[in-house]
Design a protein around this nucleic acid. Sequence first.
RNA 1: GGCUCCAUCGUCUAAUGGUUAGGACAUCGCCCUCUCAAGGCGGUAAUAGGGGUUCGAAUCCCCUUGGAGUCACCA
Length: 550
Amino acid sequence: MDYNKLAELMFPTITKTVEDYERIYPKRNLKEGAQVTRFAPSPTGFLHIGGLFASLISERIAHQTDGVFILRIEDTDKKREVENGVERILEGLKNFEIKIDEGFTDFDTCVGEYGPYKQRERAEIYQAFAKKMVSEGLAYPCFCTEEELTEIRNIQEEKKILPGYHGEFAKCRNLSLEQIEENIKKGLPYVVRMKSPGNPEKRISFKDAIRGNIEMPENIVDVVILKSDGIPTYHFAHVVDDYLMGTTVVIRGDEWISSAPIHLQMFYLLKLKAPKYAHIAPIMKEDEGGKRKISKRKDPEAAVTYYSEEGYPVEGVIEYLLNLANYTFEDFRRNNKTAHWSEFKLEMNKMSNSGGLFDLVKLNDVCKNKIASYTAEQVYDLAIAWAKEYDSELYSLLTRDKDFSVAMFNFDRNPDKPRKDIGKFNEVRNSFSFMFDELFDGKYEEIPNVDKAKQKEIIEIYKEIYDENADKDTWFATLKEVAVKVGFAAEVKEYKANPDAFGGHVGDVSTVIRVAVTGRTRTPDLWGILKTLGKNKSSDRMEKYIKELN
RNA sequence: GGCUCCAUCGUCUAAUGGUUAGGACAUCGCCCUCUCAAGGCGGUAAUAGGGGUUCGAAUCCCCUUGGAGUCACCA
């Protein structure tokens, strides 16, 4: 058969050749060892936590080596595309501080010399590559209908042989030029299939950067490379794009492992050097005792927006993910308390090759430590940034008096062992509700050890001698003074040694005041709370509580 | 079902033929302490099962079991 004629028949409007494109997109001039990576999502919904994980790894590998990180949009499937799909992905990456060098770097910006970076806009490029394959007899048109394909599959299932368009089932392989010409003239829709040279007896192997050597049977299926609308399938788009864009490592989910033989075969047929592959394990979720891949539909925490909404600090989420990627991150963090996460060197060969459970409890711990490492001012900034978006009432309360809010976030925030009780910013409202009259609900927790009359006595004495300018030690001394006046022990030890001699101890005194002012038996540093609320408000609260006691 | 990958404390994982199988989170106990939160010290807790190879196996091989992924004109 005259394949050149066939190619012209199928692609009469395609005039540029593969060589032309190779000139348009020359090899990148990068320093030795620089890696080019890419994140290539399809705009089918929100950014998935697994997608963030993959893009974080890709971004690290590129930037650790002074390489390039590309964001390419795989929009070859019109049916699954959702509105604002691209924006939602971009927003997710932006929120988590993933820096993109090329492709879509922002909502309205697309930069780089290797574009377009949206696959549908690259249709002619793929067609040129397909044309080349047809002209070399490596691809052919297939006119089989859906019904015919289903029938083939049924027969294959019945006979228990490998399903797919291959061997004797690939009937369009044998169409004559005349038949094809006639079909095209009739306007019959067709797809373009790769003519697989695969041998079912043979196996191929490749080295995966994460998993090591993988061996699989050769691909024998004549997979579709161009759909009937002229748009490529993922397989073909991947091969063409990653070749022309100069990708050196393809980092993707391990659901792609089983199609790697197809991709390797395409590179082989096109006589192109295949990139390295790194298949990462999916993030899993515990489900009724078992494990399953975290699901977009079932799990709210699958969407990165979940972490933003809950107010997890960005750095906490990123560091947790880094932790999941390389166990050595924990050591890095221990030894470099203040270093930014980007100083950590991610190593591909230290990545786990089985899917790990996403552990929200551990994430919370990482985030608590992260927030504890910030200054009160930083916490304030992050808290109001979160509240502005998700809790407008809290936002106005926090910003009403910045000094007040910062002082509040500064409770127990000493550098040596900072308080660690907030893991995410949606906890701020509840943790500090007693600091704002608007949030203070006037409910009081029970004080088990001190009866009401005694409570009243304690508060009345304390109110009179409280000095809001006293330093912490002096303040605590006055508490002891009160304890003695009401017949309580000034030292807890003293009380424990001889409980019958006292009505209680200094701790009970502080609890009474604590409850009177905050409604709670457990709070951060009471001295700080009183000082920050100010004498007037503290006194009001105490009076209110006395009324409550009557 | 075929193909592929995977299997160490509850969870994430370390230990590349010789370790009392280590760490982190969670959990429990004690200490510190004006309540919490922290912090300190300690505890419980794992090599899926069965066969080999070897002086010696979590580690290498085989089988079983279990889990995951994939088999589209979806990515």
